[in-house]
Computed example of a mutant assay.
Amino acid sequence: MKDSGRKKENSPESPVAPEDPEMVEIKAIRDKLCDMHSDIKKVMEYSNRLRFETAMECSRQEYSNAILSHLHEDIDTGLERNMVKKCPEKENCRSSFAALLQKNAGLVKQGRVDEVLLSDNREKLEELRCGAPYSKCDQCFSEVSSLFTKQVNLMRSMRIYASNQEQKADLSALETGALMREVLEPVSNPQRLEILRAVAFETKSFSAFSEITGLRGGNLLFHLQKLMDSGLILQQHERGDYMITEKGFKILQGLNGLYSSLQYSPLQISAEKTPGEKGEIRV
């Protein structure tokens, strides 16, 4: 037994068989295909994001243009119908009123109406009123004030304007628990956010979500169920494709708008500066 053990210890190691060239080539092709699949996936994700952002911008522009066209017609109709008919200054005043109201109406094309700009327009209207030469000018200014108020109310209904006092009231009414439970918590997971973005404009199957997120079986089902329980997505029928709900789309749209606005905020720009710029002291 000892001799056989020595022979085994002293026996030379068997040479490693060279790898089959065909298998090496197949492995290289497989790796290349995996890289190509990864690149295609990245391109598709980037394309989907661009399509989403473009669609949001086009929809906003079309809606704003339609509202602006309506406001311009309202200005022309209101001034023509309710201004004093016989007045030597009618055309001059009409031109000034129309210019001011059209400038104010143009604010609806902004994502958020600045209260400073609106206040400036109010002050210009008051300046015109103070310079009115006739007592009967009150009739014309009453119509202009009415049209101005209608524009402001429309901005409020579009949720693009709220005064400072209104904004404070809105914040005080915020229910943090419901916000966390119904909005923030469902989209706080990156895979769930990817799922929501994937169904923004088209339905997706379970297998498609698996490929997008890299999740399988029960793990993926957990996140899908979380989004369905929160009312952000729904399944068309048992074992059917999934689609986004109105609530889910509004949340996704709001997140996109919030992220875009933060990219150009003063705090964001300041944070992106490198240490030592503009005389900063680096500790």
Rank of each mutant, 00 (worst) to 15 (best):
T149A: 12
L125C: 07
V152C: 10
V108Q: 10
A178S: 12
L174A: 00
M158D: 10
A169T: 08
V187M: 02
S135D: 12
G131H: 13
A173F: 02
L118T: 08
G106T: 07
R129Y: 15
V183Y: 09
M180N: 05
T149G: 00
E127T: 13
F141P: 05
E143K: 05
D138Q: 07
A169H: 05
A178T: 14
E123T: 14
L128R: 02
V116L: 06
V152T: 14
F141N: 01
L118Y: 11
A105T: 09
L171G: 00
Q167T: 07
D138G: 01
Q151S: 15
E115C: 08
K124A: 13
V183A: 10
L128F: 05
L125A: 08
M155E: 06
L179S: 03
G177D: 07
L107T: 09
E182F: 02
G111V: 00
R156Y: 03
K109T: 14
S146W: 11
T176Y: 04
S142D: 05
G106K: 03
C130K: 15
K109P: 05
E182T: 06
C137E: 01
R159L: 04
E175W: 00
E185N: 09
C137S: 06
T176M: 10
L118S: 12
R159T: 01
R156P: 01
R129M: 11
L117T: 04
Y134C: 08
F148Q: 06
L184T: 13
R129S: 10
L147I: 13
E115N: 09
M180Q: 08
S135A: 14
Q151W: 07
Q167N: 04
G177L: 04
Q151A: 14
G106F: 03
N164F: 00
D170Y: 01
P133A: 06
S119W: 10
